[in-house]
Design a protein around this nucleic acid. Structure first.
Length: 230
DNA sequence: AAGTTCCTCAACCGCAGCTGG
DNA sequence: TCCAGCTGCGGTTGAGGAACT
């Protein structure tokens, strides 16, 4: 007899089963949930339900003004990298941010039926999709073995020399460039930004997750040459 | 009051990256 | 090196409630 997995909205009972399982076993064991929690749901559905709705970390309600501001700034830098953006906004999930952006910021007006009729096939607009250039980094490459891998990739202020600590992208195996305050200031001015991300409680200007797209952006036309220090 | 359209957001789908055998 | 399984991500859909006619 084949076991059909349930789809659609979650019941209160299912929520309770999922909560109980995660309280007992912790997050991350998604493959065990359908088996051990007594839930007739696929593991993807369970993970999504927890991360987007049931987790105590999830903040409900409307976005505050500063959250909206941050979303706009980060989207300008990162594009549709919803999980990265959400990672900078405590309590908000990638789904929240994505939904917010698609419904409030980028509402697509539905074309009227008459308008559709009037558009000939040859007049359909062409849309170019620009994606970040994929960059493969060897996991065994470590140019600076004396520096321990850093797993956050956050940009932080260094001591008093005007330069920021080296940081590491991805798995933290490749050293990043070091950016001077002037370089960052120049970048923010060019982009019309006053600040990005969250204030560090020390003396940093900002604390920004630098992913591949941002790396390429900084590395190419916006900042110019970057220093690499050891 | 009833029918229709619009809007929101939870949930699904397909794909890519990672990991371990 | 290949492959299968797992996880996480972004794009999209659709149910259901609100607003409008």
């Amino acid at each position: 007899m084949s076991l059909l997995l349930r789809k659609g909205s979650w019941s209160a009972e299912e929520d309770m089963l999922l909560k109980n399982f995660i309280q007992k076993h912790g997050e991350g064991k998604w493959h065990l949930i359908p088996l051990k929690a007594g839930l007739n749901r696929c593991r993807k559905s369970c993970r999504l339900r927890w991360t987007n709705y049931l987790s105590p970390k999830v903040k409900r309600g409307d976005f505050a003004e500063d959250e909206v501001d941050l979303i706009h700034k980060l989207h300008k830098l990162l594009g549709n990298r919803w999980s990265l953006i959400a990672g900078r906004i405590p309590g908000r999930t990638a789904n929240d941010v994505k939904n917010y952006w698609n419904t409030r910021v980028r509402p697509r007006p539905k074309p009227q039926k008459q308008e559709l009729k009037n558009v000939k096939p040859s007049q359909h607009p062409t849309v170019s999709i620009i994606r970040p250039i994929p960059r493969t980094i060897s996991k065994t490459l470590n140019l600076y073995p004396h520096i321990k891998p850093h797993d956050t990739g956050n940009l932080r202020t260094s001591s008093n020399d005007g330069f920021r600590d080296p940081f590491y992208i991805s798995q933290g195996l490749v050293p990043s460039p070091t950016l001077s305050d002037n370089m960052i200031k120049e970048y923010l001015e060019k982009e019309g930004l006053d600040d990005v991300g969250q204030e560090d409680n020390e003396n940093s200007l900002f604390n920004l997750t630098l992913d591949d797209g941002m790396w390429d952006l900084l590395h190419s036309e916006h900042i110019g040459e970057l220093n690499i220090t050891d």
